[in-house]
Structure formats: C-alpha cells, structure tokens
Amino acid sequence: MASVFNGIRHYAIVFGYYAKLAIQRQLEYPLFLVSWLLVIPTQYFAGIWMLRIIVDRFQPLNGWGFEDLAFLYGLGLLSHGLVVVLFIPTWGTEFAVLRGEFDRLLLRPMNVFFQFVTGYFNFIGLVDLIPGTVIFIAAARMVDFDWSFVNLAKLALVVAGGTLIRASLYTIIGAVAFWTKRSRNLINMTVATMERTTMYPLTLYPQAVQAILTFLLPIGFVSFYPAEQFLGKTKSLELPLGLALWTPLVGLIGFAVAYAVFRQGLRKYESAGS
C-alpha cells in the first residue's frame, strides 16, 4: 500500500512540475491569451445565439425548447473545456509521431501515456470553460435545475465521465498515427462531430445514427442522456441506476480501451526518420 501511495505521489509531483512549466511557457505570450479570451467566448456565445434563432424561427426541436437546448449545450461545453485543458496533446499525436517526440518519452522510467498527456497542460484552454460555465448556469436557472447535493454529485460525475469519453475518442483516433503516420484529419473530423452531436438532441437523428452514437461512439452519454434525466424528459434509452450515472462508467470503460489502443500503437512506433 505504501508503494502505491508513493507512486501516486510521485506522479502527482511530476504533473505539478509539468503544469508549472507549461503555464510559464504560455504566459510568455500574453497577447495570445488576450486573443483567446476574445475569440473563444465569442464562438460559443454565437452557438447559443444560433440555437435561439433556430427555435424562434422554426419550432422546438423534437420537444426541446431553447432553455432545454441551452442546458444541453452548456453541459456538453463543460466536458469540452476540461478535455481541452487536460488532453489537448491527443489532438497532435500525428505530429509527435512524425517528429519522433516519443523517443525521449520512451527513455524515461515513467508511463509514456502519462508523460505524453501531461507534457502540455493547456492553461490557456481554461478560457474554453468560461462560456461553458456561464451558459450552463444561465440555462440551469431557466429550466429550474435542482441544485441539490445529489444532483451536484451526479453533475460532477457526468462532467468527469464526459471528459473521459471525449479523451478516449481523441486518444484512439490520434493513435491511428502509429500505424498510418497520419491522424490529424480524423481528429479534426472527430472534434467537429463531437461539437455538432452534443449540441442537439440525439433523437433528431435516424435510429441507426442514434445506435452508432450510443454504442459504437458513445457521444450520447457526454451530455444528451444525462440532460434527459436532469430535465425530466421521456427517456429514449432505459438503463438501470439512471442515465447520469452511466456516463462515468462509459467514460472509464472507454478510457481503458483507449489506453490499450495507445499502448498497442506504441509498439508500432518507428521513431523519426526510420
């Protein structure tokens, strides 16, 4: 038990050093931080404005009014913000493979995946959490969200699980580069898919697409299924324990699979120039 505790403590200390160095590097360019503060919130607030226009000019989307859509959108943005902060390196696996960056990671007596993910703590990515938090809190007030201890605990589990689901998908797609040397286009497509499918109710899509986004690519568990439960809507998927509690479970399973795929891909790593 003592060795396990010491191991966790060691990794926590290393993560702290990595994060400190990453923050120092990013703060060397304050104008970039300022531009990020302007661009990112504008992008996401424009998204919520688009939802308002769609509902006002047409009709509620399959029974989801603007308040419901804003809640769904805000809930999805919370896990998006966290994955941008903690797992952004998975978006650039292709470049790490092509540049031979795994060479030095393999030489160190520490888990390679841990080094790869924590090697760049995206401090500036915290900006992505600002619009998500604002939108979610505002939407929660509009739908009279019950801020009880139970719901807060469920919310924390949903956000954590949603973050793991996103990270899992990006890790798996990024790891394709170990075999093909290319994965950036797939990552871009996955990011775009995540943003679109977490913005609208899953029930808008055909049954076949719903099945894919539930069982093959479990994007539905990021925000849609938990939102259905929080909002008290008719459940489109019946599972024991409640849909909100399935999100962290799906996230843990997905992350375990993603880690296994990453390790398998690492065996195919050939270094740069070979």
Rank of each mutant, 00 (worst) to 15 (best):
Met1Asn: 11
Met1Trp: 11
Ser3Arg: 13
Arg9Met: 13
His10Tyr: 12
Ile13Lys: 12
Phe15Ile: 01
Gly16Trp: 08
Tyr17Trp: 14
Ala22Cys: 11
Tyr29Phe: 15
Pro30Ser: 10
Leu31Met: 12
Val34Phe: 13
Leu37Lys: 10
Leu37Met: 13
Gln43Lys: 14
Phe45Gln: 00
Ala46Gln: 07
Ile48Tyr: 00
Ile48Ser: 05
Ile53Gly: 04
Arg57Glu: 07
Arg57Gly: 13
Phe58Gln: 13
Gln59Met: 14
Asn62Phe: 08
Trp64Asn: 03
Gly65Ala: 09
Gly65Asn: 07
Leu69Arg: 01
Phe71Lys: 00
Leu72Gly: 01
Tyr73Pro: 05
Leu77Gln: 03
His80Gly: 08
Gly81Phe: 02
Val83Ala: 10
Val84Tyr: 12
Val84Asp: 04
Val85Gln: 04
Leu86Arg: 03
Leu86Pro: 00
Ile88Gly: 01
Pro89Ala: 06
Trp91Ile: 04
Thr93Gln: 13
Phe95Val: 11
Leu98Val: 06
Leu107Arg: 07
Leu107Gln: 06
Phe113Ser: 08
Gln115Pro: 11
Gly119Leu: 06
Leu126Arg: 12
Val127Phe: 14
Val127Ile: 13
Val127Cys: 02
Pro131Ala: 04
Pro131Gln: 02
Gly132Gln: 02
Thr133Val: 09
Ile137Glu: 14
Ala139Phe: 05
Val143Pro: 00
Phe145Asn: 00
Phe145Lys: 01
Asp146Met: 07
Trp147Glu: 08
Ser148Arg: 06
Asn151Glu: 06
Leu152Ser: 07
Gly161Pro: 09
Thr163Gln: 05
Leu164Arg: 01
Arg166Lys: 14
Ala167Trp: 10
Thr171Val: 09
Ala177Gln: 02
Trp179Lys: 13
Thr180Tyr: 10
Lys181Glu: 08
Thr190Gln: 15
Thr193Leu: 10
Tyr200Glu: 10
Pro206Asn: 09
Gln207Tyr: 15
Ile212Met: 09
Ser223Phe: 03
Pro226His: 06
Gln229Phe: 04
Gln229Asn: 08
Phe230Glu: 04
Lys235Ala: 15
Leu237Met: 11
Pro240Leu: 06
Trp246Val: 00
Pro248Asn: 03
Leu249Ile: 04
Leu252Arg: 05
Phe255Asn: 04
Ala256Lys: 09
Val257Cys: 07
Ala258Asp: 00
Ala258Asn: 00
Ala258Met: 02
Gln264Asn: 14
Gln264Thr: 12
Gly265Phe: 00
Leu266Thr: 02
Leu266Lys: 03
Arg267Val: 04
Arg267Lys: 12
Ser274Thr: 11
